[in-house]
Protein backbone atom coordinates (compact mmCIF):
# COMPACT_ATOMS: atom_id res chain seq x y z
CA UNK A 1 0.00 0.00 0.00
CA UNK A 2 1.42 3.43 -0.93
CA UNK A 3 2.10 5.94 1.84
CA UNK A 4 -1.03 7.81 0.94
CA UNK A 5 -3.43 5.33 -0.59
CA UNK A 6 -6.01 6.53 -3.07
CA UNK A 7 -9.53 5.83 -2.03
CA UNK A 8 -12.67 5.68 -4.14
CA UNK A 9 -16.33 5.17 -3.32
CA UNK A 10 -18.81 3.42 -5.61
CA UNK A 11 -22.47 2.75 -5.36
CA UNK A 12 -24.77 0.08 -6.65
CA UNK A 13 -28.37 -0.51 -5.57
CA UNK A 14 -28.58 1.28 -2.25
CA UNK A 15 -29.57 4.58 -0.73
CA UNK A 16 -26.11 6.14 -0.29
CA UNK A 17 -26.85 6.20 3.42
CA UNK A 18 -23.49 4.63 4.13
CA UNK A 19 -21.55 7.24 2.24
CA UNK A 20 -23.57 9.82 4.11
CA UNK A 21 -22.39 8.25 7.36
CA UNK A 22 -18.83 8.70 6.13
CA UNK A 23 -19.52 12.35 5.31
CA UNK A 24 -21.04 12.63 8.79
CA UNK A 25 -17.64 12.02 10.30
CA UNK A 26 -17.11 15.73 9.59
CA UNK A 27 -13.96 17.00 11.34
CA UNK A 28 -12.82 13.49 12.03
CA UNK A 29 -12.81 12.93 8.30
CA UNK A 30 -10.24 15.69 7.96
CA UNK A 31 -7.89 13.87 10.31
CA UNK A 32 -8.34 10.61 8.47
CA UNK A 33 -7.95 12.30 5.10
CA UNK A 34 -4.47 13.43 6.09
CA UNK A 35 -3.51 9.79 5.50
CA UNK A 36 -5.48 9.07 2.36
CA UNK A 37 -6.32 10.69 -0.93
CA UNK A 38 -9.99 10.52 -1.82
CA UNK A 39 -10.25 10.39 -5.60
CA UNK A 40 -13.92 9.68 -5.93
CA UNK A 41 -16.71 10.42 -3.49
CA UNK A 42 -20.05 11.73 -4.65
CA UNK A 43 -21.20 12.83 -1.23
CA UNK A 44 -18.47 15.42 -0.83
CA UNK A 45 -16.79 16.06 -4.16
CA UNK A 46 -17.70 16.10 -7.83
CA UNK A 47 -14.33 15.61 -9.48
CA UNK A 48 -13.31 11.98 -9.92
CA UNK A 49 -10.34 9.96 -11.08
CA UNK A 50 -10.26 6.26 -11.87
CA UNK A 51 -6.99 5.39 -10.22
CA UNK A 52 -7.38 3.99 -6.74
CA UNK A 53 -5.98 1.53 -4.21
CA UNK A 54 -8.96 1.05 -1.95
CA UNK A 55 -12.50 0.81 -3.26
CA UNK A 56 -15.42 1.19 -0.90
CA UNK A 57 -18.49 -0.29 -2.50
CA UNK A 58 -22.00 0.44 -1.38
CA UNK A 59 -25.17 -1.24 -2.62
CA UNK A 60 -26.30 -4.63 -3.90
CA UNK A 61 -25.89 -6.28 -7.25
CA UNK A 62 -29.37 -6.24 -8.79
CA UNK A 63 -28.91 -6.06 -12.56
CA UNK A 64 -26.86 -7.92 -15.17
CA UNK A 65 -24.98 -4.72 -16.06
CA UNK A 66 -23.79 -4.40 -12.45
CA UNK A 67 -21.58 -7.42 -12.89
CA UNK A 68 -19.00 -6.13 -15.42
CA UNK A 69 -18.86 -2.87 -13.49
CA UNK A 70 -18.09 -4.50 -10.14
CA UNK A 71 -15.55 -6.79 -11.85
CA UNK A 72 -13.75 -3.79 -13.23
CA UNK A 73 -13.65 -2.14 -9.82
CA UNK A 74 -12.29 -5.35 -8.38
CA UNK A 75 -9.54 -5.41 -10.99
CA UNK A 76 -8.50 -1.83 -10.34
CA UNK A 77 -8.56 -1.96 -6.57
CA UNK A 78 -5.94 -3.51 -4.35
CA UNK A 79 -8.47 -3.73 -1.57
CA UNK A 80 -12.21 -3.90 -2.02
CA UNK A 81 -14.37 -3.10 0.96
CA UNK A 82 -18.11 -3.69 1.01
CA UNK A 83 -19.89 -1.05 3.07
CA UNK A 84 -23.41 -1.27 4.37
CA UNK A 85 -25.92 -4.09 4.49
CA UNK A 86 -26.86 -3.85 0.80
CA UNK A 87 -23.28 -4.58 -0.17
CA UNK A 88 -22.31 -6.98 2.62
CA UNK A 89 -25.42 -9.14 2.90
CA UNK A 90 -27.78 -7.97 0.17
CA UNK A 91 -29.73 -5.90 2.67
CA UNK A 92 -33.34 -4.90 2.27
CA UNK A 93 -33.04 -5.17 -1.48
CA UNK A 94 -33.40 -8.89 -0.95
CA UNK A 95 -36.99 -8.41 0.14
CA UNK A 96 -37.84 -8.54 -3.52
CA UNK A 97 -36.32 -11.98 -3.77
CA UNK A 98 -39.38 -13.31 -1.99
CA UNK A 99 -41.77 -12.26 -4.71
CA UNK A 100 -41.64 -13.24 -8.35
CA UNK A 101 -39.85 -11.20 -10.95
CA UNK A 102 -42.80 -9.96 -12.96
CA UNK A 103 -44.51 -8.85 -9.77
CA UNK A 104 -41.66 -6.73 -8.40
CA UNK A 105 -40.88 -5.33 -11.81
CA UNK A 106 -44.46 -4.26 -12.31
CA UNK A 107 -44.59 -2.78 -8.81
CA UNK A 108 -41.49 -0.65 -9.28
CA UNK A 109 -41.49 0.25 -12.96
CA UNK A 110 -45.16 -0.14 -13.87
CA UNK A 111 -45.80 -0.01 -17.61
CA UNK A 112 -42.11 0.44 -18.38
CA UNK A 113 -41.03 -2.69 -16.61
CA UNK A 114 -39.90 -4.45 -19.77
CA UNK A 115 -37.30 -1.71 -20.37
CA UNK A 116 -35.53 -2.54 -17.18
CA UNK A 117 -33.41 -5.54 -16.49
CA UNK A 118 -33.33 -6.52 -12.84
CA UNK A 119 -32.93 -9.78 -11.01
CA UNK A 120 -32.70 -11.14 -7.47
CA UNK A 121 -30.56 -8.88 -5.29
CA UNK A 122 -27.23 -10.18 -4.05
CA UNK A 123 -24.34 -8.93 -1.95
CA UNK A 124 -21.13 -7.82 -3.67
CA UNK A 125 -19.36 -10.98 -2.50
CA UNK A 126 -21.72 -13.05 -4.66
CA UNK A 127 -19.90 -11.69 -7.73
CA UNK A 128 -16.37 -10.72 -6.73
CA UNK A 129 -13.98 -11.34 -3.86
CA UNK A 130 -14.46 -8.87 -1.00
CA UNK A 131 -11.53 -8.18 1.30
CA UNK A 132 -13.35 -6.55 4.15
CA UNK A 133 -16.94 -5.98 5.23
CA UNK A 134 -18.25 -2.99 7.11
CA UNK A 135 -21.71 -4.06 8.14
CA UNK A 136 -24.80 -2.11 9.06
CA UNK A 137 -27.75 -0.27 7.65
CA UNK A 138 -26.41 2.29 7.65
CA UNK A 139 -22.82 1.61 8.71
CA UNK A 140 -21.62 2.99 12.00
CA UNK A 141 -19.32 5.93 11.32
CA UNK A 142 -17.04 5.02 14.21
CA UNK A 143 -16.64 1.50 12.95
CA UNK A 144 -15.89 2.88 9.50
CA UNK A 145 -13.20 5.13 10.91
CA UNK A 146 -11.76 2.24 12.82
CA UNK A 147 -11.71 -0.03 9.78
CA UNK A 148 -9.94 2.65 7.73
CA UNK A 149 -7.33 3.15 10.43
CA UNK A 150 -6.66 -0.57 10.60
CA UNK A 151 -6.23 -0.67 6.84
CA UNK A 152 -3.74 2.16 7.06
CA UNK A 153 -1.87 0.26 9.76
CA UNK A 154 -1.72 -2.74 7.47
CA UNK A 155 -4.48 -4.77 9.08
CA UNK A 156 -7.85 -5.99 7.94
CA UNK A 157 -10.55 -5.05 10.39
CA UNK A 158 -12.72 -7.94 11.35
CA UNK A 159 -16.03 -7.20 13.03
CA UNK A 160 -17.11 -9.24 16.03
CA UNK A 161 -18.50 -12.68 15.29
CA UNK A 162 -20.69 -12.89 18.37
CA UNK A 163 -24.32 -11.74 18.44
CA UNK A 164 -25.62 -8.28 19.32
CA UNK A 165 -26.72 -9.53 22.77
CA UNK A 166 -23.12 -9.21 23.94
CA UNK A 167 -23.01 -5.49 23.27
CA UNK A 168 -26.57 -5.11 24.46
CA UNK A 169 -25.56 -6.55 27.81
CA UNK A 170 -22.56 -4.26 27.96
CA UNK A 171 -24.86 -1.33 27.33
CA UNK A 172 -27.06 -2.48 30.21
CA UNK A 173 -30.34 -2.73 28.34
CA UNK A 174 -33.32 -4.68 29.55
CA UNK A 175 -33.75 -7.54 27.13
CA UNK A 176 -36.59 -6.97 24.71
CA UNK A 177 -37.76 -10.55 25.13
CA UNK A 178 -38.37 -9.78 28.80
CA UNK A 179 -40.54 -6.91 27.66
CA UNK A 180 -42.46 -9.22 25.37
CA UNK A 181 -40.87 -7.92 22.18
CA UNK A 182 -39.20 -9.75 19.35
CA UNK A 183 -35.52 -8.99 18.86
CA UNK A 184 -33.06 -10.43 16.36
CA UNK A 185 -30.04 -9.56 18.48
CA UNK A 186 -29.77 -13.22 19.43
CA UNK A 187 -28.58 -14.15 15.94
CA UNK A 188 -27.29 -10.88 14.48
CA UNK A 189 -23.62 -10.06 14.18
CA UNK A 190 -22.54 -7.45 16.72
CA UNK A 191 -20.39 -4.39 16.15
CA UNK A 192 -22.97 -1.62 16.35
CA UNK A 193 -22.99 -1.46 20.14
CA UNK A 194 -26.63 -2.61 20.04
CA UNK A 195 -27.52 0.94 19.08
CA UNK A 196 -31.15 0.27 18.13
CA UNK A 197 -31.87 -1.44 21.43
CA UNK A 198 -30.09 1.38 23.27
CA UNK A 199 -32.48 3.78 21.60
CA UNK A 200 -35.53 1.85 22.74
CA UNK A 201 -36.14 -0.22 19.63
CA UNK A 202 -35.23 -3.83 18.89
CA UNK A 203 -32.50 -5.28 16.72
CA UNK A 204 -33.72 -5.77 13.16
CA UNK A 205 -30.72 -7.76 12.06
CA UNK A 206 -29.11 -5.20 9.77
CA UNK A 207 -25.59 -6.51 10.29
CA UNK A 208 -26.55 -9.90 9.02
CA UNK A 209 -26.55 -13.33 10.56
CA UNK A 210 -23.69 -13.91 12.97
CA UNK A 211 -21.28 -16.54 11.58
CA UNK A 212 -22.17 -19.16 14.16
CA UNK A 213 -25.77 -18.19 14.80
CA UNK A 214 -28.03 -21.02 15.86
CA UNK A 215 -31.03 -20.28 13.67
CA UNK A 216 -32.99 -23.34 14.75
CA UNK A 217 -32.65 -22.28 18.36
CA UNK A 218 -33.72 -18.75 17.46
CA UNK A 219 -36.87 -20.11 15.90
CA UNK A 220 -37.60 -22.06 19.04
CA UNK A 221 -36.90 -19.08 21.27
CA UNK A 222 -39.31 -16.90 19.31
CA UNK A 223 -41.89 -19.63 19.42
CA UNK A 224 -41.51 -20.16 23.15
CA UNK A 225 -41.84 -16.46 23.75
CA UNK A 226 -45.17 -16.57 22.01
CA UNK A 227 -44.39 -15.10 18.60
CA UNK A 228 -46.09 -16.54 15.57
CA UNK A 229 -44.23 -17.78 12.55
CA UNK A 230 -45.50 -14.80 10.55
CA UNK A 231 -44.17 -12.29 13.05
CA UNK A 232 -40.83 -14.02 13.08
CA UNK A 233 -40.73 -14.20 9.30
CA UNK A 234 -41.46 -10.50 8.96
CA UNK A 235 -38.45 -9.70 11.06
CA UNK A 236 -36.15 -12.28 9.53
CA UNK A 237 -36.84 -11.38 5.92
CA UNK A 238 -36.03 -7.72 6.33
CA UNK A 239 -32.27 -8.22 6.34
CA UNK A 240 -31.58 -11.93 6.30
CA UNK A 241 -33.28 -12.50 2.97
CA UNK A 242 -30.17 -13.35 1.03
CA UNK A 243 -28.76 -15.69 3.64
CA UNK A 244 -31.73 -17.89 4.12
CA UNK A 245 -33.74 -19.40 1.35
CA UNK A 246 -36.42 -20.92 3.47
CA UNK A 247 -37.61 -17.89 5.40
Amino acid sequence: MPAKPKVAFFDFAGCEGDQLQVANLEERLLDLVSHIDIVRFREIKTEKRDNYDIAFVEGSITRPEDEPRIREIRENAKILVAIGACATIGGINCLKNFINESEYKATVYGDFSRWYSTYAARPVSAVVKVDMDIHGCPIDKNEFARAVKELLLGKIYSPPKYPVCVECKMAGNICRFEQGRLCLGIVTRAGCGACCVNEGSVCWGCRGIAPDANMDAAGQVMDEHGFTWLEAQDHLRLYFGCNINKL
Binding site: Y162, P163, C165, V166, K169, M170, C175, G185, I186, V187, D212, A213, N214, D216, A217, A218, Q220, V221
Partner: peptide, 13 residues
Protein backbone atom coordinates in the same frame (compact mmCIF):
# COMPACT_ATOMS: atom_id res chain seq x y z
CA UNK B 1 -27.42 -27.03 25.04
CA UNK B 2 -29.27 -27.76 21.82
CA UNK B 3 -30.92 -24.34 21.84
CA UNK B 4 -27.87 -22.45 23.05
CA UNK B 5 -27.44 -19.32 20.95
CA UNK B 6 -23.84 -18.78 22.09
CA UNK B 7 -24.94 -15.27 22.91
CA UNK B 8 -22.99 -14.95 26.13
CA UNK B 9 -25.82 -13.30 28.02
CA UNK B 10 -25.59 -15.77 30.89
CA UNK B 11 -21.97 -14.94 31.65
CA UNK B 12 -22.12 -11.23 30.85
CA UNK B 13 -24.86 -10.63 33.41
Amino acid sequence: SQTCLSCGSCVLV
